[in-house]
Write a protein that binds this DNA or RNA. Sequence first.
DNA 1: ATGGTTTTTACTGCGTC
DNA 2: GACGCGGTAAAAACCAT
Length: 327
Amino acid sequence: MSDNVRTFTDEHTRRRDRSDERTDRPAENLRCPECSGQLATDTEHGETVCRECGLVVQEDEIDHGPEWRAFDSNEKDRKSRVGAPTTKMMHDKGLSTNIGWQDRDAYGKSLSSRQREKMQRLRTWNERFRTRDSKERNLKQALGEIDRMASALGLPDTVRETASVIYRRALDDDLLPGRSIEGVATASLYAAARQAGTPRSLDELTTVSRVEKDEIARTYRYVARELSLEIKPADPEQYVPRFASDLSLSDEAERRARQLLSTAKAQGVHSGKSPVGLAAASIYAASLLTNQKVTQSRVSEVANISEVTIRNRYHELLDADDAQSTI
DNA sequence: ATGGTTTTTACTGCGTC
DNA sequence: GACGCGGTAAAAACCAT
């Protein structure tokens, strides 16, 4: 605060040579404390100076203006470096031209048939250029698929972005030949979801993908190895929030489920067991412990795990919990 | 391909509402 | 009697070798 408003009372009495040509802008309603001359803001140096006596009234302001100058709007367009944000979710990062499908001009009036023909030709060529080579077309299709699957699984945009990046890398490293676009796209999404800590099981991926589970798993292993993606084995706790909300359980139950899982982990009961199964069992156990009982069959539905597995796991979880508390 | 482990399927018995 | 649950045996799936 005080740094920034060292103005009138401060000791600093730096003055500037008045003949010094500056890019001054008159500062509204401000007068020099010494000579009452008009003050001006120098956006280049970030100073406020008096036009009469050259007293530097304030310095180190933040310059909010662009660092270039433009003399007409044409030049402004050329020099300006801002524009629409880019996104990796579109194959051309959202930078290409799109020609609207409606045969209307900028005022909304419909075009003459001659104009319509012309626009149609433009559209055709624009489309051809946009998806020029096979890689671009490949990418376009894959990203569309990723987008579709991600929304079907309710995955956030960040995951889609990650999946897109992974797919791009796979494409750049020539991992595609011999593998289907669909398969690699699905594998990328699977990897991205796990990386983001919001994993979806292979079964869930299978329901929205056009490829078989085996292929997804195979492709995923291959891609993960080739790109050396660092993905830890899925943590059961990551499934807990989703299951809990699907069953509309309280936060209390969710916490309890987490706690059960962590004590189980501490005792090493979990190794080798399927993470989804453990998560499902912890949810079921927590629902009992917090008097919000849900049936095993309901849990097995939302978790896609057999009731038998839930039974087996939740006994182990409770045993582990007992052992922990009696120590 | 193989063997060991985990999960699933199918079925049965028990208690409760 | 339908439902939820526990348990079992055998089949299937999975994983590392």
